[in-house]
Write a protein that binds this DNA or RNA. Structure first.
Lengths: 225, 225
DNA sequence: GAGGAACTTGCCCAGAGTGCAAACTTGCAC
DNA sequence: GTGCAAGTTTGCACTCTGGGCAAGTTCCTC
């Protein structure tokens, strides 16, 4: 149901595959909601999605992989925003802007739900980690492309990797604190908190984590609660 | 908790368990060396360690978990160093000092080997990620304890999580770049490179990543010392 | 050295993941 | 349409994982 202006020939085959993939992740998410993590099998998912067990494995290598599509969608969104930023902008500022886009109800809702459903289960947490790491690699690549655009600039691998990793860590930290404070609350006030947490985290990063506590935005955060 | 004045009662049982645990990880590592990742089973490990398959699972929940003990040992070493730093020292400086300890032949050797053996295999990479994440959580806890010691200081959860995550990311970035540059080379020159990479990474972090890409910034080292 | 706690092991079973080959669907050309 | 090639689904069979259970073994304590 995505009508992009530049639709690259969605053949019947492609449509079917996309529909099946969607059916699988929907089924997996429903089972997660209904039975809780670890209480359903691949066979259950396949049955709910109307396919055979074997076909499930043609699409995903595990239950976790199927559920990871939620996190991946979430992080891909941020990554897309990052790529849209002008090349001459400082990377930290681009990152801040990209992360800011995550504090949007539509975007964060699936992630918030997954988070609450996932919290207790270790194998699901593991695939979350993988998703964040994958996003880090993507950011590194995006940043490299950006650097390549500016003439006379050399790529400092260490700088890029450290920066990308730190940015992602800050995003993760903000999300963690937000979930801990607000649960899966998606009300405007809660999203404001998330936005402020993201700003603060990137702020700490930009300031080199100078002072142990920066009262300026911290109090602001508490006011919102 | 380990080397306290109260003798840590190494009973026969404890010894046996420790020996078995060690035998398992040794066997796993040998098989990894000999057959490569994914080309041996839990049964192979158990046989090589002289125990039953069932007993293996009494110690580790998977092959990856058994191999992760290498990474965990590596990171625990850093964590221990971190805890040894004075409480009034800035956290970043403590982190720098702790990471510096990793550039030691004895410490880094197993990690370097594991890295080269692991690189291609995704499920092993995943458990590495988990180990780094676990270390992050430990650092957060250690930092909290430290903050609790200083009177009148409030714990800023976001600050701590963002900082710990960023520090770990910088350590990871330095290791990644080092492996990419030097492979598993443990010669003094190579270790110097690692040391400098760690210093630079933490330097970038402390400087808020404000400088454009610029390798080998020895000024930052001077600043910190 | 008797008794109990801790540990190992074999047995069993549900479920994960994958290769294979037979069926079926779609795309394409005639 | 007909037909064929390429892509997909599915059942089947198989290996491996992970863990519950109960019987056997080792270690500690009294």
């Amino acid at each position: 149901m995505t009508d992009e202006p530049a639709a690259p020939a969605p053949s019947r085959r492609e449509q079917n595959k996309a529909a099946t993939r969607q059916a699988i992740t929907d089924a997996a998410l429903n089972l997660l909601r209904g039975k809780g993590p670890g209480n359903f099998t691949v066979e259950d998912i396949a049955a709910a999605a109307g396919i055979s067990r074997r076909t499930f494995f043609n699409y995903f290598s595990s239950t976790e992989a199927a559920l990871a599509s939620v996190t991946n969608g979430f992080l891909d969104h941020a990554l897309r925003q990052f790529r849209l930023r002008p090349a001459e902008e400082p990377i930290l500022e681009s990152a801040r802007a990209a992360l800011m886009e995550l504090a949007d109800p539509m975007t964060v809702a699936p992630m918030a739900e997954l988070f609450t459903l996932t919290q207790q289960n270790s194998s699901l947490v593991r695939s979350e980690l993988e998703a964040w790491d994958h996003c880090t690699e993507q950011i590194i690549m995006a940043a490299k492309e950006r650097v390549a655009k500016t003439p006379g600039a050399a790529i400092d691998e260490l700088y890029l990797r450290a920066l990308a990793g730190s940015v992602i860590s800050c995003g993760k930290a903000a999300m963690d604190v937000w979930f801990a404070q607000c649960g899966a609350d998606l009300a405007p006030a809660s999203l404001s908190v998330l936005r402020q947490l993201l700003i603060d985290a990137i702020g700490h990063l930009g300031a080199g984590f100078d002072s142990p506590a920066r009262p300026s935005s911290h109090t602001l955060l508490k006011d919102r609660l």
